[in-house]
Amino acid sequence: MIYWQLFISFLQVGLFSIGGGYASLPIIQSRIVEQHGWLDMAEFTDLITIAEMTPGPIALNAATFVGTRIGGLPGALAATFGCIFPALILVSLLAFVYYRYKKLTVVQSVLGSLRPVVVALIASAGLGIMLSVAFGGRAYAPENLDIAGVVLFVLALAALRKLKTNPILTMAACGAVYAAVHLIVP
């Protein structure tokens, strides 16, 4: 029974969080914290911290975090499956429509105008992360500048563009170098 409730609650999270990432937080709060009381507000805040510190989408992280607490591993599986269930159906439908009709003039025109916009969206996300690296979420002032972070960013970008390094290894190397630098020069 509890598994069914987990499944349905996270199905709602999966269905109503359009746009991914933080768009799912208000729905998680309404279903999980307020409706079922599976987490209190402090645990909900912990969840956001963990989601930011670990890989994977926030909604899936929440599904495992809540599911494990309420019903162990089966709970985590029920919640995770509920979370991806609406996407499995709706996105495969969309994929079908896209491949069937993408040759139509109207669809071509729509896709043509969507592509540059998607590039802009990715650029905006990237620049946001870059600023948060450079200033650590503080005011954009010279004294808040994290020089090690900025240098690492420039080196990583140069390595990716010129040497075509593996992106995941580059990211991990940045983490290791940053930690090492801060341990040597506290």
Partner: peptide
């Protein structure tokens, strides 16, 4: 510290793709 440094790499990957 590791996660903070990794953010620099994440930003670089995205900017590389955007470029």
């Amino acid at each position: 510290l590791f996660l903070k440094g990794m953010q620099a790499g994440v930003a670089a990957v995205i900017i590389d793709v955007v470029a």
